[in-house]
Every structure is written in structure tokens, then in C-alpha cells.
Computed example of a mutant assay.
Amino acid sequence: MLSYEIDPQLHLNGGYYIQYADHARYACVQAAGISVEELVGGGIGPVNLETVIKYHRELRGGDQVEVTCAWEWGDGKTYRVHHLLRRLDGTVAAEVSHVSGLLDLRTRRLVARPDREWRSRARQPELLGLPEGEAATS
């Protein structure tokens, strides 16, 4: 945590929880072998439609955290990504959950099956919770 991330009560400012989650999700996508730049260059962009933060324990200046990234797929236009922010001692400080989709940048509409779009680009789809070669059906 950096000093500018801290609010007057010496807590991590709420907006940074979202930034930490976004960074973890981006790193997960990159680890799966997907270039977000190429995705956007191809006319599709990831979007968050809803974000919820549940605070469990305060994070204060000097705390270090690990951020997990778990993907949940269905058969519609949206998917969920869940993040846990844990102190290094394992204490869960917060949960950040997103309802997300892939936006067709030409039509400004959500892509019908984002799981298929992500899978078609991923070298390691299992990092996104997508079994290799299978279509999501739940």
C-alpha cells in the first residue's frame, strides 16, 4: 500500500479495493494468454456492470494483501468474477465481486456468449475457470 491510497483514518481508501481487484483480474487474463489490447483491437472490450465490496477487516497503511480471482460462468451475456483480498496472515479483509460482460464496441451491445469469446483466445482457459475445449452450460 502506498501513502496516497490511505484515507484520513489510515484505512485503505475504498476505490483501491476495486483497483486491486481489477489489477488481479487483468493479471489473470494475461496469465491465461489473452492480450486485452488485441481483444479491444478486435472490437470487443470487457466491462463491469456491477461491483460489490464487502468489508470484513480493515486494511491499514503498511498491510500487504494477496488478491484471488475466481470466475463463474453461465450461458448468458454476463459472468461473475469474485476476488478475496487477504492479508498475508490469511485474514480475509474484503471481497470484491463483479458482474461483467464483453461489449461489442461497434454495436455497443453485450456479446451473447462471453465464455466462448474468452475461451477462443485463451492458451490456458482453466485460469479463467473455463475447462479447455468445453462450452459452459450452467
Results as ranks from 00 to 15, higher is better:
residue 110 L to D: 06
residue 137 T to Q: 15
residue 26 Y to C: 10
residue 67 V to A: 02
residue 35 S to T: 07
residue 116 R to V: 11
residue 64 Q to M: 15
residue 104 D to I: 01
residue 100 S to V: 00
residue 113 R to Q: 13
residue 26 Y to T: 15
residue 84 L to I: 07
residue 5 E to R: 14
residue 42 G to C: 05
residue 60 R to A: 04
residue 105 L to I: 06
residue 96 V to H: 01
residue 71 W to Y: 15
residue 30 Q to H: 14
residue 72 E to V: 11
residue 131 P to I: 12
residue 36 V to E: 15
residue 73 W to M: 01
residue 67 V to R: 01
residue 101 G to F: 09
residue 60 R to D: 04
residue 21 A to R: 00
residue 117 E to N: 07
residue 110 L to C: 08
residue 21 A to H: 01
residue 97 S to I: 11
residue 24 A to C: 06
residue 94 A to L: 05
residue 122 A to P: 03
residue 10 L to D: 13
residue 84 L to E: 13
residue 6 I to A: 09
residue 114 P to L: 08
residue 33 G to D: 04
residue 30 Q to D: 13
residue 25 R to V: 11
residue 65 V to A: 04
residue 20 Y to S: 09
residue 41 G to F: 09
residue 138 S to W: 14
residue 91 T to N: 01
residue 66 E to N: 13
residue 64 Q to A: 15
residue 102 L to F: 08
residue 94 A to C: 06
residue 61 G to M: 14
residue 28 C to Y: 00
residue 117 E to H: 10
residue 53 I to E: 03
residue 64 Q to D: 12
residue 15 G to L: 07
residue 8 P to C: 12
residue 69 C to H: 06
residue 1 M to F: 07
residue 27 A to W: 02
residue 31 A to D: 09
residue 70 A to S: 14
residue 17 Y to R: 05
residue 50 E to F: 12
residue 22 D to G: 10
residue 46 P to N: 02
residue 53 I to F: 05
residue 124 Q to H: 12
residue 102 L to V: 00
residue 98 H to N: 11
residue 18 I to W: 01
residue 18 I to M: 09
residue 87 R to N: 06
residue 18 I to C: 08
residue 138 S to M: 10
residue 53 I to V: 14
residue 24 A to M: 03
residue 127 L to H: 01
residue 31 A to N: 07
residue 39 L to K: 06
residue 55 Y to N: 06
residue 103 L to R: 08
residue 133 G to Q: 00
residue 8 P to L: 14
residue 53 I to M: 04
residue 55 Y to G: 05
residue 125 P to C: 08
residue 78 T to I: 12
residue 24 A to S: 09
residue 54 K to G: 06
residue 108 R to Y: 13
residue 33 G to K: 04
residue 45 G to S: 15
residue 121 R to F: 09
residue 35 S to R: 08
residue 101 G to V: 03
residue 46 P to D: 04
residue 109 R to D: 06
residue 12 L to Q: 06
residue 93 A to L: 05
residue 72 E to N: 08
residue 68 T to D: 04
residue 115 D to R: 00
residue 81 V to H: 01
residue 95 E to D: 11
residue 121 R to L: 07
residue 14 G to A: 14
residue 57 R to L: 02
residue 32 A to V: 03
residue 28 C to P: 00
residue 79 Y to S: 00
residue 138 S to Q: 12
residue 63 D to V: 02
residue 69 C to T: 15
residue 93 A to R: 04
residue 46 P to K: 01
residue 85 L to Q: 00
residue 38 E to N: 13
residue 131 P to S: 11
residue 118 W to G: 02
residue 101 G to L: 04
residue 36 V to I: 15
residue 36 V to W: 13
residue 129 G to N: 03
residue 35 S to F: 11
residue 15 G to F: 01
residue 56 H to F: 10
residue 88 L to T: 13
residue 34 I to A: 02
residue 99 V to H: 03
residue 67 V to Y: 00
residue 94 A to M: 02
residue 128 L to G: 05
residue 31 A to L: 09
residue 131 P to C: 10
residue 55 Y to W: 09
residue 52 V to N: 08
residue 99 V to L: 15
residue 100 S to R: 03
residue 45 G to T: 08
residue 109 R to L: 07
residue 56 H to T: 12
residue 94 A to D: 03
residue 73 W to Y: 04
residue 79 Y to L: 05
residue 116 R to C: 12
residue 73 W to P: 00
residue 45 G to V: 05
residue 93 A to H: 06
residue 84 L to D: 05
residue 83 H to N: 04
residue 54 K to T: 14
residue 94 A to G: 07
residue 60 R to T: 07
residue 106 R to L: 05
residue 118 W to Q: 00
residue 46 P to W: 03
residue 68 T to G: 05
